[in-house]
Write a protein that binds this DNA or RNA. Structure first.
Length: 430
RNA sequence: UCCCCGGUAGCUCAAUGGUGGAGCGAGCGGCUGUUAACCGCUAGGUUGUAGGUUCGAAUCCUACCCGGGGAGCCA
């Protein structure tokens, strides 16, 4: 049986249509009922009058519970009184399943309760809007790289050792051995970039750190481009064009969803290329001027990200951090070996670091020293060292966190709403 | 892992040492244009768990469990 989607109703004014969906809300005045039905593409109000349908159908509708699945048929009319501008004069309502009393009412709920009901919470308007924007961000990401000659290469989820050796990994059994869930595809991407030139990987990433903040998930999605023959400036240029392209595409294609989320789009509209760039030391000097208590030499923390969010209305590229606070594979700046050729992109409005990346160490000897300094198991990195033995070239790339980006664009308080089923510290249900 | 806050009806909350309530939701009834509709009635509770103080504990104390917020680390 063919049916129409609510998002297409504007093309059917004056015609009868059938909608298949779920009852979002209902109001009744005895002889007239208003059924609000959602189908994933939108919500439409159906008007049910005693004159238009049989008494059996009218009585059945009077008993409909929230989220009951229904198939409704009626004439499409334009009406200012209807939410959405269009409504259906119903001629038939078919009950598919009468829902049990629905736990999520159309009112305020606590976050703990909603997270327990995540599988049902996803049906509500704002959650649907967030998921559509997430899909748009992912589409923008893939389109950006695909249209620029990058090849999508999937890196492994199960890995034999820590990529960076610093953060805590999820350990899993691997036959008689141990394996770890990936925390980054970068090292493998360096290998594939030497094969294909420009590559990107896009997949889930796992961090077993006991982080408990609005910016952390234990399972999150990351896109990581890697480019052979690229230096830090190339990486920074790519990163800012990339972020800008995502913003423009979401503003262009998802205005309705941003509106549902009550996102003030002005701060997003005014983002322009190029983004401001500061070296770590320039930024440290600014912190001093602003009388912000910042220990020069440390990595940026949440308080610093908040200050940056207040002082800059554009994404900020911070480059050349001290080597000490960065991973072993970072290449030192020939002009000042104390700092790394790396870059973080800090989103405005306090959303923090959305990109981390830079140029990789391409010299065999220096990389061997760094592995020793960081006390990493050399044997696990022999293949990685091979990349510096056979045609080593300058190269670099970055990683962008999808949920942090979606949280920023949607203006959500917490990134847990930006992935369908978030995994967080001690939370894995549903 | 550390610091702070909380746990009372299905949900959101009130009751601050003296008879546990309201709104929403649910059930029943009313209403022909509702916008989180409205009006009336009904049901709904071992106050997170265990112990302690007290004539008397939702309320004070201790431990534990669970949740929320923040820090560090990171995307």
């Amino acid at each position: 049986m063919s049916h129409t989607y609510i998002s297409d109703l504007k093309n059917y004014v004056g015609q009868p249509v059938t909608i298949k969906g779920w009852l979002y809300n209902k109001r009744s005045s005895g002889k007239i009922q208003f059924l609000q039905v959602r189908d994933g593409t939108g919500i439409v109000q159906g008007v049910l009058a005693t004159n238009d349908v049989s008494p059996e159908i009218f009585q059945m509708c009077d008993r409909l519970s929230q989220e009951s699945s229904v198939i409704i048929t009626g004439l499409v009319r334009e009406d200012q009184r209807a939410p959405g501008g269009y409504e259906l004069t119903l001629t038939n309502v078919q009950l598919v399943h009468l829902a049990e009393p629905y736990p999520i009412a159309l009112k305020e709920h606590g976050i703990g309760f909603l997270m327990e009901q995540r599988h049902l919470w996803l049906r509500s308007r704002k959650q649907v809007a967030v998921l559509k924007i997430r899909a748009e961000v992912i589409k923008a990401i893939r389109n950006f790289f695909d249209s620029r000659g990058f090849v999508l290469v999937d890196t492994p989820i199960l890995t034999p050792a820590a990529c960076e050796g610093t953060t805590t990994l999820f350990e899993v059994g691997y036959f008689d051995d141990k394996a770890y869930l990936t925390q980054s595809g970068q090292l493998y991407n360096e290998a594939t970039a030497m094969a294909l030139g420009k590559v990107y990987c896009f997949g889930p990433t796992f961090r077993a750190e006991k982080s408990k903040t609005r910016k952390h998930l234990t399972e999150f999605w990351m896109v990581e481009p890697e480019i052979a023959y690229a230096e830090l400036d190339d990486v920074m240029n790519l990163a800012e064009e990339f972020v800008y392209t995502i913003i423009r595409q979401v503003l262009e294609n998802r205005p309705e969803e941003l509106k549902i989320l009550e996102r003030d789009t002005k701060p997003l509209e005014k983002i322009k290329l190029p983004f401001p760039r500061l070296s770590y030391h320039e930024l440290a000097k600014l912190f001093k001027e602003w009388q912000h208590n910042f220990a020069d030499g440390n990595d940026l923390g949440a308080p610093e990200e908040t200050v940056i969010g207040e002082k800059f209305d554009q994404p900020l590229l911070v480059h050349r951090f001290p080597m000490k606070v960065k991973a072993f594979y970072m290449k030192a700046d020939p002009a000042n070996p104390e700092v790394a050729l790396c870059v973080d992109v800090i989103a405005p409005e306090g959303y923090g670091e959305i990109i981390g990346g830079g140029q990789r160490e391409d010299d065999l000897k220096r990389l061997e020293e760094k592995i020793k300094e960081h006390k990493l198991p050399r044997a696990a990195f022999e293949w990685y060292l091979d990349l510096r033995r056979y045609g080593s070239v300058p190269h670099g790339g970055f990683g962008l966190g999808v949920e942090r980006t979606v949280a920023w664009l949607c203006g959500t308080e917490h990134i847990r709403e930006c992935i369908p089923f978030p995994r967080m510290l001690y939370k894995i249900y549903p």
